[in-house]
Design a protein around this nucleic acid. Structure first.
Lengths: 235, 235
DNA sequence: CGGCAGTTTGATGTTACTCAATTTAAGTGG
DNA sequence: CCACTTAAATTGAGTAACATCAAACTGCCG
């Protein structure tokens, strides 16, 4: 009963935060009472900075990203979200999001009642631990992003982003011949590492010319992983 | 008894995390049993990345900073720490620090037993809430730093940092005539916003020439706060 | 076939970096 | 209190990295 009730909308998603959430606790038989699932089309808004919400959102399928937007239109992508990711770990205790989130592909999102999560976290040590892990990962990743953007060249930044994504994608997908599903446009990469799309294109051109990697039809093809890892900072 | 026992070493520090930590709970009469206080001289190491520690550190007096260091010597300062700041909010639940920390001035640091904090947090809602606030602030500040460094010019970055520090300094000090205690060297500013010290000096020269601000003898003198706020992004 | 979004390429401009010298400030010991 | 030493800040000249602007190219879909 406690493990037979999957997270609605995330049929294969019983690890990490969602896995811990469905520990032994009354209410698992009827998750619909405290979980709502909804789709968002590609490019659609999932959450908005400073908008209060009673729900904690988790990405079930597809890709999304979190970002901060400036008054003049510039935006910084803070994180790409993959299935199983909590949209904003701090939203578990805080009522508002400090960043906005958009769907990159078509996605399914689960919204869990914050009150229910809080109630469960007092009873489930594994959930508390999962939440702590989320906080830790969020802070570490944001710190590394800040460090790479403050200190690194365009090539290093892009290598860092790709290596980071590759590791995360590999958790969710069976990877053959170093081919990774990769729905990002160069504009997204530019917004994530603080470059212009034009310069991103140039760097990709160089990497392709050196036989390190190429992107085509939504697939990132890493021809020389060793070389790519050489380029990335923060080993 | 519950409020008469101040955080050892932080005589006036009963707000925020430390304040919540000393809520009604047995053991307040003898904080020395689970709190150790120690000084660190200016420039000294307080914590090191990936080194496990049973203590959660809190800055009592002086200035410090957190940073990430690259293999080749480059470093990114992530945050400047003021009295009352938890060195690393994630260290409350995790055993290791993901960033290192150094003293900027001579400082006093308190180390609280993590186990004691955990025990208290189950009994003290105010402490749980204070911890959540720390997590939230850490993530938001790191995200804003990443965004500013990805998207903003040198002038905007420096204005952002100064405005951020000004707000924080004002919480701890009585400010007269817009004069703020300011122990940073230009090298620190450079490492914090991803510029070279030479360029920081040039930007400061321009700001000084425009009559916006000046720094002398450890004091930041803001002559035109309105203009400075115009320069800063992320209002 | 035409239109559109995304990518690539070229030419040029700007910002910030590098290197090096100079000035200023801050200590230190006589 | 003053020479001496050292760290920090400033200034100048030259350069590299990335941005900007604009045009051409590609693949895709109606």
């Amino acid at each position: 009963m406690n493990s037979a009730s999957p997270c609605v909308g995330c049929p294969n998603r019983l690890a990490g935060f969602c896995g811990a959430l469905f520990g032994a606790y009354p209410g698992n038989e009827n998750p619909a009472a405290w979980q709502r699932v909804f789709p968002v089309r590609a490019g659609g808004q999932i959450a908005t900075r400073n908008q209060p919400s009673g729900d904690v959102l988790v990405l079930c399928t597809g890709w999304a990203f979190r970002y901060l937007q400036f008054a003049d239109g510039r935006r910084q992508i803070l994180q790409f979200l993959l299935p199983g990711d909590v949209l904003s770990p701090t939203s578990i205790s805080a009522e508002t999001y400090f960043a906005s989130a958009k769907a990159l592909t078509e996605v399914m999102v689960s919204g869990f009642s914050r009150d229910e999560i809080r109630a469960r976290s007092t009873a489930l040590p594994a959930l508390r631990s999962a939440i702590a892990n989320c906080h830790f990962a969020e802070a570490r990743e944001l710190a590394e992003l800040a460090a790479v953007m403050g200190q690194c060249s365009a090539e290093e930044r892009i290598a860092f982003l790709l290596l980071h994504l590759i590791r995360r994608i590999a958790v969710h997908n069976v990877i053959r011949e170093n081919r990774y599903p990769f729905p990002l446009r160069q504009q997204h990469i530019a917004d994530a590492v603080g470059l212009t799309p034009v310069h991103v294109s140039r760097v990709f051109g160089l990497l392709r010319g050196r036989g390190i990697l190429s992107v085509a039809e939504g697939v990132l093809n890493v021809a020389d992983m060793g070389e790519l890892e050489q380029l990335g900072p923060l080993k």
